[in-house]
Amino acid sequence: MSYVTSPARLIVACCALPLLVACESTPPEMDSSLIPASQRKDYQLTMSKAKACPINLAELSDIRSSKDLLVGNSNVTEDTLYTLLQQSLEDMNVSPDIEAANSVKVILNRAFIKSLGSNMVATVVLKVRYKPDYADEYSPATTFRGQSMNVNANISEEQSNQIAIDAMKTAIDDATKRIKSSLLHNCSDALGEIEAV
Rank of each mutant, 00 (worst) to 15 (best):
S103Y: 04
A16E: 11
V76R: 04
E29A: 02
Y43P: 00
L191F: 00
R110S: 10
C53Q: 08
G192I: 05
S65K: 14
S2R: 15
S74Y: 03
R110P: 01
E193Y: 11
E90M: 13
V128H: 05
I163Y: 01
L57Q: 00
A111I: 03
N109I: 06
K127G: 04
C187G: 08
L57P: 12
S38E: 00
F144D: 01
S181R: 04
L57R: 06
K67R: 15
R178D: 03
L184I: 00
K105I: 05
A196Q: 09
K127I: 07
R129G: 03
L17W: 13
N154E: 10
V71M: 06
Q159P: 05
N119L: 15
R40Q: 03
I98H: 11
G117N: 03
N150A: 05
R64D: 03
I55D: 02
V106H: 07
Q39F: 00
M1F: 11
S182Y: 04
Q159C: 02
Q159H: 12
Q147Y: 03
A190T: 03
G117H: 01
K131Y: 11
V104P: 05
S38P: 05
C15A: 11
R9A: 08
S115R: 14
P140A: 03
K67L: 08
L45C: 00
S38I: 00
D173M: 13
S115N: 15
A100F: 13
I113N: 12
T176Q: 08
E99Q: 15
S160L: 15
L10S: 06
M120G: 14
C15L: 15
A167I: 02
L183G: 06
P96C: 08
C15M: 07
M120Q: 12
A196S: 09
I98S: 06
E78D: 10
L126A: 09
F112V: 06
L17V: 10
D189S: 10
R64Q: 02
D62I: 01
V121I: 11
V76D: 05
V71N: 12
V121S: 06
A153E: 09
S6N: 12
V4A: 13
P96S: 07
I163P: 00
T176V: 11
D62C: 05
Y138F: 14
C53G: 06
P54I: 05
